[in-house]
Design a protein around this nucleic acid. Structure first.
Lengths: 363, 363
DNA sequence: TTGAAAGCGCTAACAA
DNA sequence: TTGTTAGCGCTTTCAA
């Protein structure tokens, strides 16, 4: 690999045609800037990067000018190595193409940017081992924080090694923030999954619904468990008991909702006036499946979801759901990354019921 | 900030309670591992990270064991500094909450992972200056490549400083890959925007449509221009001329489509049998706006979009659109990051027409 | 206030 | 094959 000798990059710069392939110009470094400004590297560093140490305005000008002239830009990796800390926070999501997570990513990123943090997104593919592996790498990268947004597993068999890894991450000086899962001993931005589902159930009962069927993601998923439990409580509040066999577990996705509904037999469906899916994606999949079976929504069967993902605005009839204020969630998560660790351990973000046409009042 | 002296981290490890806040354990480094294994740092490095240099299997075992025992994980920043290159490729998108970009991000990430690259996503908010700033930072970070996915501006007034920055990035050894924009002198994964729109127009004409209205994003957006131009050509192929005043420019977003339609006056609407929006988000916004005005889709007015974003599967009636194979786009982009720069300059990814119920055959 | 110099954790010549 | 020794670009004591 051909490289220019360190000597005369500036001279080459102007005359060198881009024709020659694989020619790399050595990036201009801090010491280049220092030399050009006639100061020490230390001084140049003080002017250019943070460090509110006093430096003669005259020199400062020189340095800034040199930096601009040479088109200097700091080497982040080198800074990270030298400082021993970075300003990067990692956001771990199950699937970035999922509307729920991509919206959350957007809100986390914009909140982070406002605080001068950069965000890197990593995808776990709902795989705990991958989650662990990623946290491990992040420790090596001295990430400032890791935000775990994928829904956790209730089964602590999976959780234990993850907790170990997260603990090491914290011991290294990083912050750990969970979103919507209280099963691990770390700071959490807690969604009111249980309360939201409970209020939804109450609202639906008030609309006249009595015969329900629930669609959950994997059974050991925290979100699934809490939302189902909340819905069950809401029904209980109204004196309606929900048999265990009225809860069907499938995949926490559109396809999961679709196939679950396809697999139901006619008898079961006939005995169901409303299907509550634990997230909107599943609900939409269910709707597709139901329509595939010739059922009309909401005349033949009503459907409700959870999350209020953005694409619901284009769905007809409007899907009744529980709104999760993602912007607030993102802001909260970043606040926890920044704030002192001693802060409140688990403020709950309120989720509100949104009744729409997919669950009209009955007669 | 309290730190343990480098001396005895391992001894402390077991006995130290997590109670004391702000206690950071010094991360274990390569030299710790080397010491524990009784070899030189160089040897440890050779065992642990890439470098297919021969090393005595016996020593190798020792090193691996020590690394596992100490829970070592490499410091990526340090590696980047030492090697002078990183394995990170940056993906620049306009808005990660947008279904089109989040799907693309997913496909780029999965393609990248297969090649051992990591991806960091950055958001440009459709802001060229921010784009430039980001590329500049990436140069400082020695990113391996930058993939620019946001649609570019036709106006080269904006483009020139961006090109400069990208050129510097390349000179530094980084690769530049554009997606769906051929306006800049860099390697491109080119979508057949023009051809796709052209075929769509032909197909619609064949269905009996004659009176069109086009909805574009900002006029200087490459995607807008190409898709409109393509559609115009498709109509011309059938002998239909499209007056300039039949193209309405708005925002390249759902809201843009919505407001554009709201602003149309009744006369104009009455004289429109089909609206083609240059992307699905706009088309969906337009549908919402049209319905708000009491129009039925497709009986009163037909609508078509472009992209075939995932959430279309939940839209009724199904939206006619042009399918962009995002998975292929992601794979192509990463292939270009890896491949030799001398490779073909611009292979076109084919976009295919998907006719659905929003544009039924007329009488 | 400034600069010299010693790191940060890792890689890669070069010798041994 | 292994170890020694310079770096990579930057920050940060510590003297001057």
């Amino acid at each position: 690999m051909l490289r220019f000798p360190h000597a005369a990059p500036a001279a080459v710069k102007g005359t060198m045609a881009r024709a020659a392939e694989d020619v790399r110009r050595k990036p201009v470094t801090l010491s280049d800037v220092a030399a050009a400004a006639g100061v020490s590297q230390a001084t140049a560093s003080r002017c250019l990067n943070g460090s509110e140490r006093k430096v003669n305005p005259e020199l400062r000008e020189k340095v800034l000018a040199a930096a601009a002239r040479l088109n200097y830009t700091a080497n982040l990796s080198a800074q990270t190595v030298a400082r021993g800390t970075s300003t990067t926070v990692a956001l771990l999501v199950s699937d970035i193409a999922d509307a729920y997570f991509s919206s959350m990513a957007a809100s986390v990123m914009s909140a982070a940017e406002a605080k001068g943090l950069r965000v890197t997104i990593a995808v776990t593919e709902r795989n705990v081992e991958r989650e662990i592996e990623l946290v491990r790498e992040l420790r090596g990268q001295h990430a400032r924080a890791v935000i775990l947004a994928g829904s956790g597993y209730v089964d602590s068999r999976f959780a234990e090694p993850l907790v170990r890894e997260l603990t090491m991450f914290e011991e290294m000086g990083g912050r750990v923030v969970l979103i919507s899962r209280t099963d691990l001993p770390f700071e959490t931005v807690d969604l009111d999954n249980l309360g939201g589902a409970r209020r939804l159930a109450s609202a639906l009962v008030r609309l006249g619904y009595e015969s329900f069927r629930l669609l959950g993601g994997e059974e050991q998923l925290v979100a699934t468990r809490d939302r189902i439990e909340g819905f069950r409580l809401g029904l209980a509040d109204a004196g309606i008991h929900l048999d265990a066999d009225r809860v069907i577990y499938s995949d926490f996705s559109w396809e999961g909702g679709f196939t679950a509904v396809q697999a139901m037999d006619d008898k079961v469906l006939a005995d169901t006036r409303l299907i509550f899916a634990v997230n909107d994606e599943m609900a939409l999949g269910a709707i597709a499946g139901l329509r595939g079976r010739g059922l009309r929504i909401p005349e033949d069967i009503a459907v409700a979801g959870f999350d209020d993902i953005r694409s619901l605005r284009d769905v007809v009839p409007g899907l009744t759901t529980v709104r999760v204020p993602l912007v607030e969630v993102g802001r909260e998560a970043i606040a926890r990354v920044i704030g002192s660790p001693s802060g409140e351990r688990s403020r709950v973000v309120v989720a509100t019921v949104a009744l729409r046409d997919s669950t009209p009042r009955l007669n």
